[in-house]
Design a binder for these strands. Structure first.
Lengths: 127, 127
DNA sequence: TCAATAATACAACGATAGTTGAAATATACA
DNA sequence: TGTATATTTCAACTATCGTTGTATTATTGA
């Protein structure tokens, strides 16, 4: 992923409305949701939601398909993964052993995620 | 991770300076870097860098330790993992099979990352 | 103690983002 | 064709962010 893409994506996720929308669509996966359904689920005025859907779509985090007079939005999971890859790039260049527990992150398995916070300890003790 | 924490973290990563700083410190891992080294590496005026270091520290993405008159900054890797977990939460609630290739994301192994973009295809064909 | 260095704090300016209300486009159905 | 619905577009206002220049704090070493 290019630096500027990552910047626009992070910016797109720094709004409460857009973060809620994206996470909702991550959960629905390939099914996606129609704009009206999203507005109803998150209780956001249609025009305001439209503003944020456009922003998310322009940065590539959402895809759209028309269904009659409805617009169906879907999360762009591959781009989300690219973003994660960009952020974690060379994260353990100096000490590969430090990264052992990071391998399991960004998983869909809820059983794996809770363990991360406790198993991954920094050697510096700064936190 | 709480919603508001995720928001402030995403906001902190939506600035070019801060994204560069954080990625640099991710690479140095537990060693971290002194403020002056970061300023030199990224060619950023000291006062401006200080502004962004403070922002990153306040949202918990960086940790600081004093070494004489130097301040050493380190990336908060566990929080980065929490953020990734928050973003990808329940990402495949409806179809666990879709998530198979996502398991490998957020890894430190450079051999794994390039494969993600090609192996993970959406069933919708929207992208 | 005094000078030099590392880093932060403050003030001010210009630029950009988010929300709201009103209007417009486009599709569906009678 | 005409009306209702889904969604977007536009204008305007407020609020917030990032950079720069200047001043300040804190630590080191003579």
């Amino acid at each position: 992923m290019e630096r500027n893409t990552a910047l626009t994506v992070f910016d797109s996720l720094s709004s409460g409305v857009r973060l809620d929308v994206f996470r909702l669509l991550v959960k629905t996966g390939a099914d996606g949701m129609v704009a009206g359904e999203i507005a109803q689920a998150l209780e956001i005025p249609a025009n305001n939601l439209s503003f944020h859907l456009k922003a998310l779509t322009q940065v590539g985090m959402l895809g759209v398909t028309q269904e009659g007079r409805f617009l169906r939005y879907r999360a762009n999971i591959p781009q989300m993964l690219d973003l994660i890859g960009y952020l974690t790039e060379e994260c353990c260049a100096n000490d590969p052993g430090q990264c052992a527990t990071m391998r399991a992150a960004s998983t869909c398995d809820p059983a794996v995620l809770p363990a991360l916070a406790t198993t991954h300890t920094q050697t510096s003790g700064a936190f």
